[in-house]
Design a protein around this nucleic acid. Structure first.
Length: 371
DNA sequence: GACCCGTGGCC
DNA sequence: TGGCCAAGGGT
């Protein structure tokens, strides 16, 4: 997109050239990457980029294989129901990605004749496609020159230029350097090369035995032009400290009717776990453990399940860490007098349902899943 | 800019 | 064990 570029120096040109040469012999071979001279499938590029948002390559490998086997093209994915997509996405997290993934496939079919738009601006308008994904797809799938900035490239560039400004304030400054580095041709290869370098050589610093792990600078194609090596590259990029993660407490009710169905509800589209299935339960509140108060006062429908049946509070808790808080759940098991009004899933079909991981932990504590 | 939004792996 | 991190997007 637009934005200031740093002045392009010979150092920039040398670095970009070295990166592309390195890529030709050291690129990672990943299922969603076309080989040299092989045709690129924009659907697979887009799908992999969405999956890779904040998610590791190892996790995406199997998920990508399952999705492409089930839905080989964008029209197949668009023709699926959203609930099917949510089921297939279960366990991958950030469920807005799954909602947007389906909405995006539908938009490509309905508004673009089933063909992905090939410019950054048009891609950017699709649901779930932000600055990074639009640039990546434009460059990788369509050979456009686009400035691709992700966490890896951000780190590599910040070290290469020895940028000491704190993130995220440093983003424009880093973007300007990446822009100046990005070649007119092979911008997609350049971006993927930078990500490979970030993932395998210019790795994030981790504390190990009280020291910071060091990047493998000797193996890096940017060795000669890197300014970060004049200091300690492991210290870069500098980041603003994160806000602490509070604890929340709540109750989940595992209710099984006479027919062996488990009672669930589907969350609304907005907010946490949107579109996914969850056990009835309380809200998750800051502060004190829920069992010390009146935990289901905020959910009368769930509370009603406990009336009539013998409710058992299970020993132990479910603990789960989300991006911005930790939740500790008390689990109550009950045979309700009536399951009316709840979504019913047969006990033996729970494993294929759109249950997020925290709810699978609840099911496990209640003895419902091997998992 | 700040905050919301999952999960698994690593040391 | 706890804190940090991963090919971010939406509001």
């Amino acid at each position: 997109m637009t934005g200031k570029s740093a002045k392009i120096t010979q150092r920039h040109l040398d670095a970009a050239s070295a990166v592309l040469n390195w890529y030709d012999s050291h690129r990672r071979h990943l299922p969603w990457r076309a080989g040299p001279g092989q045709p690129v499938d924009p659907y697979r590029v887009w799908l992999s980029e969405v999956m890779l948002q904040q998610t590791t390559v190892a996790t995406v490998r199997s998920a990508f294989a399952e999705f492409t086997r089930r839905w080989p093209g964008v029209a197949d994915l668009a023709a699926a129901s959203r609930d099917e997509v949510m089921e297939q996405w279960a366990g991958l997290g950030y469920y807005a990605r799954a909602r947007n993934l389906h909405a995006c496939a539908v938009a490509v079919v309905n508004d673009h004749g089933g063909v992905f738009p090939d410019t950054e601006d048009e891609l950017r308008k699709l649901p779930g496609v932000g600055a990074y994904t639009a640039a990546a797809v434009a460059a990788i799938a369509f050979g456009r020159r686009a400035v691709v900035m992700d966490g890896n490239i951000e780190r590599v560039a910040a070290r290469w230029q020895a940028i000491t400004t704190l993130l995220p304030a440093a983003k424009p400054e880093i973007h300007a350097e990446v822009d100046a580095l990005t070649p007119d041709h092979r911008a997609g290869d350049f971006a993927q090369a930078m990500m490979d370098i970030g993932a395998t050589i210019c790795t994030p610093a981790r504390k190990s035995k009280g020291r910071l792990s060091q990047p493998d600078c000797d193996a890096c194609p940017l060795f000669e032009t890197c300014m970060g090596r004049q200091g300690d590259p492991a210290l870069l990029p500098m980041k603003k400290p994160k806000t602490p993660r509070p604890d929340r407490f709540g109750v989940a009710v595992v209710a099984e009717d006479e027919a062996g169905n488990i009672l669930l509800e589907r969350r609304g589209d907005k907010g946490m776990l949107g579109g996914m299935l969850v056990f009835p339960g309380s809200n998750w509140a800051d502060g004190t453990p829920a069992q010390s108060r009146y935990p289901l006062e905020d959910n009368q429908a769930a509370k009603r399940l406990l009336e009539g049946g013998e409710a058992v509070t299970l020993n132990g808790n479910v603990e789960h860490i989300f991006s911005h808080f930790r939740v500790i759940l008390t689990v109550i098991r009950v045979k309700p007098a009536s399951g009316e009004g709840w979504l019913k899933v047969p006990k033996n079909e729970l494993s294929g349902a759109a249950l997020p991981t925290v709810m699978r932990k609840v099911a496990r504590l209640a003895g419902l899943e091997a998992w």
